[in-house]
Computed example of a mutant assay.
Amino acid sequence: MMQIENVFHIPTLSTQLFIILSIVSITIGLGLIIFGLVRQKNQKNSMLATCCIVFGILIIISHIIQIAVRML
């Protein structure tokens, strides 16, 4: 009889690799925020700058939450 765990096996990343990928993503998020702020300073009311800032903040928040959940 086949075990259900074998059928629905979902591979997961090791904790160290996951944290490295999250740190890289957080760095990319910071880069987007800095790019957005510089662009916003140079060109007022820039839609691209606003999108970069918001997207960067969302990336950082989501990865910090993922790291916190993974550490618990």
Score class of each variant (00 low, 15 high):
Val54Thr: 09
Pro11Asp: 12
Ile33Ala: 09
Ile33Cys: 06
Met1His: 02
Leu48Ser: 12
Leu21Asn: 13
Ile60Gln: 04
Cys52Trp: 03
Ser25Thr: 15
Cys51Lys: 07
Gly56Lys: 01
Ile67Tyr: 01
Ala49Phe: 04
Glu5Met: 02
Ser14Trp: 01
Cys51Leu: 14
Phe8His: 03
Ile59His: 01
Ile19Glu: 13
Phe8Trp: 07
Thr50Ile: 04
Ile65Arg: 01
Leu32Ala: 13
Ile57Asp: 05
Leu30Gln: 07
Thr15Ser: 10
Met1Glu: 10
Ile59Glu: 05
Val7Glu: 09
Leu48Asp: 11
Ser14Tyr: 02
Ile53His: 03
Val7Gln: 05
Leu30Met: 15
Ala49Pro: 00
Gln43Asn: 10
Thr27Trp: 06
Thr50Leu: 07
Gln66Cys: 12
Ile26Phe: 05
Met2Lys: 09
Asn6Lys: 09
Gly36Ile: 02
His63Met: 12
Met47Lys: 05
Ser46Pro: 01
Val38Pro: 00
Ile10Ser: 06
Ile57Cys: 09
Leu37Cys: 10
Arg39Phe: 02
Phe35Gln: 09
Phe55Leu: 14
Ser46Met: 04
His9Val: 07
Gln3Thr: 08
Asn6Leu: 06
Phe35Cys: 04
Ile33His: 07
Ile23Phe: 10
Ile65Lys: 00
Ile59Phe: 03
Leu72Glu: 11
Thr27Ser: 15
Ile19Arg: 02
Leu32His: 14
Gln40Ala: 14
Ile19Leu: 05
Ile61Val: 14
His9Gly: 06
Cys52Tyr: 04
Ile59Arg: 00
Gln3Gly: 05
Ile4Arg: 01
Lys44Ser: 14
Glu5Val: 03
